[in-house]
Every structure is written in C-alpha cells, then in structure tokens.
C-alpha cells in the first residue's frame, strides 16, 4: 500500500476536526482574490474609458469618460497597494529579471502610473497615449501571473 497515502486512515491530533474528505471549495474572498479583482477591475474600467463617448470640449470634466478613468486609477492604486502588502515577499533582488513577480509588479505599477498620467494630462491631445500604455502594461502584468 502506498507509503504516504496510508497515513489518511489515522486520526488527527490537530486543533480542529475538519476532515480532509469533505470536498474542498476554494474561497471567493481572500486577500489574494481582492488583489486580483482590483487589477482586473482597473483593466476593465480603463478599456471602457477608451470606448465610451468622450465629453464635450467645453466641459471635459463631467460625463462617464472621466468618471470611468478616475475609477480605473483608483482600482489600479488599490491593486498596487494590496500587492505590496500581501505579496511583498514574492519580489526579490536575487535573479531579478528571472523572477516573474518582479515583472508583474513593475508592469502593474507602470499601468497605474499610465492611468494617473492620462488623467493629469487630459484633455490634452496626448493623454490617450498614457492611457493606452497604462492599459497595455496592466494587461501584461496580469498575463504574467494569469
């Protein structure tokens, strides 16, 4: 009989009686999950920002476009902050370029900076560039850890 598997028949002396046999359900709301939702949410909102109608030139601050842009930046900021808090130890100086989490963090931070720069620069004609660089960086950041 398999050496390691046979251990299951013994009783636990641990602190709870939860049994290994009950089907495991992955929790929906953990620190990791929040981090993930913030990042995905910021990307979704940035994409929406790009496709909704743009505000009129005489009143660039109101309308759905600036609202979505601001929300994208807030979620991006939340993603960066929660990443630093919950996944700080996944970053490393050793073998810097080989660690995918370093790239993930750099691109995610760059993505959020792109959003912020786009908002700061709006309604100037160049601001879409910042927004696009931001969204593409965010997409790449998410892809690395998808």
């Amino acid at each position: 009989m398999p050496l390691l598997q046979s251990a299951t028949v013994l009783n636990a002396t641990g602190e709870s009686t939860s049994s290994v046999d009950t089907a495991f359900k992955e929790p929906w709301f953990t620190a990791n999950k929040w981090h993930q939702y913030f990042g995905l949410g910021s990307l979704a909102l940035a994409t929406l920002t790009a496709i909704v109608p743009k505000p009129s030139e005489d009143d660039p601050e109101t309308g759905i476009h600036p609202t979505l842009a601001n929300s994208a930046a807030i979620l991006g900021g939340a993603a960066v902050a929660s990443g630093l808090v919950f996944h700080y130890e996944d970053l490393s100086w050793k073998n810097f370029t080989k660690n995918p989490d370093n790239w993930h963090a750099l691109l995610g931070a760059l993505g959020t900076l792109g959003y912020v720069a786009a908002i700061a620069d709006a309604p100037d004609g160049n601001h879409p560039t910042y927004g696009i660089v931001g969204a593409v960086s965010m997409l790449a950041a998410i892809k690395i850890t998808w």
Partner: peptide, 22 residues
C-alpha cells in the same frame, strides 16, 4: 495532503487545507 488542487498543478495559498487544521 495540504494543497487540495495539487493534481491540477495549483499550489495557491488559497487552496491549502492542512489536515487537522482550520
């Protein structure tokens, strides 16, 4: 034993349950 989805290659902290512990 602890990584409930290890067979699928998932080792996320979220999927850990140590037998006998919460």
């Amino acid at each position: 034993k602890c990584h409930q989805n290890a067979e699928q290659g998932e080792f996320d902290e979220d999927n850990v349950r140590i037998p006998g512990f919460k």
